[in-house]
Nucleic acid binder design. Structure first.
Lengths: 205, 205
DNA sequence: TTTAAAAAATAAGATATCTTAAGAAATGGT
DNA sequence: ACCATTTCTTAAGATATCTTATTTTTTAAA
């Protein structure tokens, strides 16, 4: 199921930009502006290519120029549970792994043909050496991500599956038509079959 | 059910400390060191006293000197869902409300007789004016909180109720004996009756 | 365009979790 | 120590969600 070779289609290009965020600023829930970053590595990925696997130490944040990535875990019953979708201008990685050098809990995989920048954290090992304005942006980005994650927790604790589905549609309208039913189900925490039931139930109304 | 008058037992004291974190650094999942803070307001709360209600704009972060608070939402079916417990040395507030001046989603309430510092965010409206070392600490605190929140999301998406309960016991062993079954149930996302069943099932093993 | 593969829909039966209600145990106040 | 209140346990029936299997539809490849 997850046998695609990472970077199997890597038409590497030279590409330098000034970008906004620190590589750590990942698991973002909103597009990022990248003026503070330098990146020289860009790759074209095919659907199904895996950038990071569970158990590896994350070396990069991935900024999506085109296409869409997902980060997900495989639970003890073998089911995929999606943490985050990363469409254009979003960044994704495993924050714990990249910051604390622990094995990644997540896989990161392209769900469309995608063009991705590899943002190394090697220049940023010591956060104290960063410019103040970058740190301010980091703090704000983390804070916004934390607020979003806490809202997702509230939803998972208190909303029904149907509510979580309609919330998802409202929150990410531009994503809905690009994602498979299976992916949305894995994000909101139900089986694809049950999400299909939910859709039918909603349609009948 | 939530009729206790906020601050009904407010033996206010003068109390000044140098503390570590910015008031925004809330919804924390770990004790905080407070060397960068000033606070002059301290109150003694009775069990059941409410510090912040859903719909209010949060003005303070609450640092727990003694006792334990909880932050929770009331969902559409009237059920309480706990976002965070805040025992000694932890801080709690509604981050979105205090940072963005939006109505709070949560209630904050004492679950034991508690002594709490009120940390105003009025001195910190503009994050750019903060000292760099405070901002660095903020960023790290937000980052760690975000990692913890994301782990909780993974648990809610992929673990069974029994697994979430045993995870909770492992993660917060010192809290388990202080909390009611009802509170733990509201945190892990099951009914108290079902958590009781889970305990019985575990005991039988 | 045709065909193979993947995704989605449907349905029936199984399981997890909730609801309601009642009794037992623990707690707090007087 | 006693009573009232809250918490916890237990159990039965209800509901939400999952599992498995099959069919239909859509997508991708040749």
């Amino acid at each position: 199921m997850y046998t695609n070779c990472p970077h199997k289609n890597p038409r590497t290009q030279n590409y330098t930009i000034r970008i906004f965020d620190h590589p750590w600023i990942i698991k973002t829930t909103e597009p990022i502006n990248m003026k503070h970053f330098k990146s020289t590595k860009s790759k074209i990925l095919s659907k199904g290519d895996i950038l990071l696997s569970q158990g590896e130490i994350a070396k990069y944040g991935y900024f999506v120029k085109r296409g869409c990535l997902k980060s997900y875990v495989i639970d003890s019953t073998g089911k995929e549970r999606i943490m985050q979708f990363a469409p254009e201008k979003w960044m994704v990685s495993d924050l714990d792994s990249i910051a604390n050098k622990v094995p990644s809990m997540v896989f990161i995989e392209a769900i469309e043909e995608s063009e991705v920048l590899f943002l190394s954290n090697s220049d940023f090992e010591d956060i104290d050496n960063l410019d103040k304005d970058i740190i301010v942006e980091m703090a704000i980005k983390f804070r916004n991500n934390l607020i979003a994650s806490n809202k997702r927790i509230i939803g998972l604790l208190s909303a029904t599956s149907e509510q979580r589905y309609t919330d998802f549609i409202e929150t990410y309208p531009s994503l809905v038509n690009r994602l498979s039913l299976k992916s949305i189900a894995a994000y909101i925490g139900v089986t694809p079959e049950y999400l299909s039931d939910i859709r039918r139930k909603i349609a009948k109304k």
